[in-house]
Design a protein around this nucleic acid. Structure first.
Lengths: 211, 211
DNA sequence: TAGATTGTTAATCGATTAACAATC
DNA sequence: TAGATTGTTAATCGATTAACAATC
């Protein structure tokens, strides 16, 4: 709804309203494509990608169609091309500086995790109220006094935060571990922090639409 | 489809196929009801409950109707009654002994969290390969050698596990923090460990249906 | 009784899938 | 060219909502 010169691929904001479910599948496509690339695969198809994730080929194509045209009839999708496109859509084509607030067990555990750095997120600052921690570096990440949060956040352009303070009415601050492997006969429910952050990144980038 | 004497409330397995979305809303109803009870509320209605969670009254009633009849026309739902019913449905009317596998930062953080004990889960055993940890107690929880896992799991009747080993192709083992509070103008994506465990508990209890 | 609220059936809405012309 | 595969429109399926008789 506002295309002009450059073809019809509006890799941007998704001009309508994109269902949440579609956005979360985007993260799954991205993972799978990265895995395929890692295995040396140059191209894939909606059928292949769908089969890997348990979706129909039609759904894969439909999902992607919300954002533009990324495929090549008769050929399929070039992995690298599609990865680039999806990262742009999710907003992870840039690096997101992330702040961790609270350095209990939970917060420290998060600092230790660099894994999701591969997906475009980097923890650049941590905040706590404990004077013993303030001014230190933990896992190479500077710890600031909580009251400096606004200032540091502004200065470093931080847009995403991981609140790791054990608080809340229920007294629960919750963490859900997940494995990618599928152990046999065992029910598994899990969450992938990078996926959550991607959803968040998308939501922030498209803030107008989702209020 | 196998009712006999005791009325029509089949608080059990959900005789058909219950949509995943319904089960996850059940967890939300439960939280809200517990909060209401905590505030001294004796009863509530589908309209009230729905409004608190942003659902329609019809949806609340429909969701509950999957499992039986818990309301009282003209009156609404008695909080305590409905809490009991939902816990039974989710399988958290009993205590679930839980094992944590892997005692890195992540695993240790999980041991520290007793919050979800209120929801019917208790971490009773931890496993690691580090000889320095094996045989110790961390946060009151005994640490066993990984190779004793099958034995301990059997002996203690453990059915749920939190795999907190930093592994997997992506090198990511993922944790997602969540707060219950809704900070202003900020996008938030989060997960509640107790909710995840409830979903898992439901899945295990109704294993036949969800394969 | 009148007012409130349930459980449930029918109507609506949205998301998934099937089918196919267009393209490489 | 023949085979493969896209993007997209139409058909199907499922989930949400509206409406209402039954009940307290």
């Amino acid at each position: 709804m506002s295309e002009s010169s450059h073809k019809k691929s509006s890799t941007s904001a998704a001009d309508g309203q994109v269902p949440k479910a579609v956005v979360s599948r985007l993260s799954l496509y991205l993972r799978e494509l990265q895995r395929l690339m890692h295995d040396g695969q140059e191209t894939t198809s909606s059928t292949h990608l769908g089969r890997l994730l348990g979706f129909t080929d039609a759904q894969v194509r439909k999902d992607l169609a919300y954002f533009g045209q990324f495929g090549h009839p008769g050929i399929g999708y070039r992995c690298h091309e599609l990865v680039t496109a999806i990262r742009r859509i999710l907003g992870t084509d840039r690096f997101w500086p992330v702040a961790v607030i609270g350095l209990g067990n939970l917060g420290r555990a998060l600092l230790g995790y660099r894994g999701f750095g591969h997906q475009g997120f980097r923890i650049v600052a941590a905040f706590d109220v404990d004077p013993a921690k303030i001014g230190q570096e933990l896992d190479g990440i500077p710890v600031y006094a909580l009251e400096h949060l606004p200032e540091v956040v502004r200065r470093q352009g931080i847009k995403l935060g991981l609140i790791a303070v054990p608080a809340g009415i229920e007294g629960i601050l919750n963490f859900a571990p997940a494995t990618i492997a599928v152990p046999d006969g065992i029910k598994m429910v899990g969450v992938d922090l990078a996926i959550e952050l991607e959803q968040l990144s998308f939501a922030v980038v498209n803030r107008s639409s989702n209020a």
